[in-house]
Write a protein that binds this DNA or RNA. Structure first.
Lengths: 138, 138
DNA sequence: CTTGAACCTCTAGTCACTAGAGAGTGTATA
DNA sequence: TATACACTCTCTAGTGACTAGAGGTTCAAG
């Protein structure tokens, strides 16, 4: 059994975040010492590692809640889990796509001004003011 | 002169968002009718278009505040504007980079399970539980 | 038994909005 | 001119996933 600080050190999840996860129902309520401090065991550590891994991959708290529920029912179909992962993947792809459009546009805009002139002639400012200067939708 | 609703329609920025921008100091306080309703003119429309364009490119409110300040002083050096744009560009590139790592990992995980089995054997859930199954840092 | 790091709960703040309540205003039509 | 009703006003609270801080308590080492 170890403290929340120890759990934090081992998982690299900050202490207030651990408490937040508990509040959100991602972590079952931890055992407490007589002095009301949380104590965790291996199961708690594994659960939090699972959560951290999922968060690192960008899954929402809500999605993780569903994943945990499935994990706790090993006999159930895992269709939902796969769906969640696939949908997360397409979310990520969508984000990449949009960011690439921004990248292209920002690159073009940044290149237009070396920062040595005055604001009046600045291509960055002109581009923002006038959408017509953009080469594609964004 | 036109109403906030009309401005909203023309810029595709929602009415509460326009009021929010005003509160944040992005928009100067609009003129009012005798009945206290906001009225805008061409200058207001251009300013909001500028803001929208910048937001679409992912600039923060704070960054936009700086950009607007520069825009209002046409005689000043535009170095800051270029810096803001360049820094935004590198932010975007950083995000893309991280998302690509996630994409790769999620793709691998998703492929590992077709969703037709049971939770116990699900590769998605197993991968989340065990970071060792990952092929690279993320 | 003392010290001090770690822990507790609670509230409030972050960012860029979004939603809703309850009241007042503007304008087109009868 | 009266009415209808879409639009607008301000204000408060909520979103997601934390983060920060206050003010107080507990644990473990020496």
């Amino acid at each position: 059994m170890f403290s929340i600080g120890e759990l934090s050190r081992r998982t690299k999840v900050k202490v207030p975040t651990i408490r937040y996860y508990e509040e959100m129902g991602l972590l079952t309520e931890a055992e407490r010492t007589s002095g009301n401090q949380r104590r965790y065991d291996k199961a708690g550590l594994e659960r939090l590692s699972f959560i951290r891994h999922a968060r690192d991959l960008g899954f929402s708290i809500e999605a993780i809640l569903s994943l945990i529920e499935l994990q706790e029912h090993p006999d159930r179909s895992c269709e939902a889990a796969t769906n969640i992962a696939v949908s997360q993947l397409s979310d990520v792809r969508e984000k990449i796509k949009r960011l690439k459009v921004l990248e292209r546009e920002l690159k073009r805009i940044s290149k237009g001004c070396d920062g040595r002139g005055i604001s009046e002639d600045c291509y960055v400012l002109a581009s923002l003011a006038d959408h017509e200067l953009c080469c594609r939708e964004h």
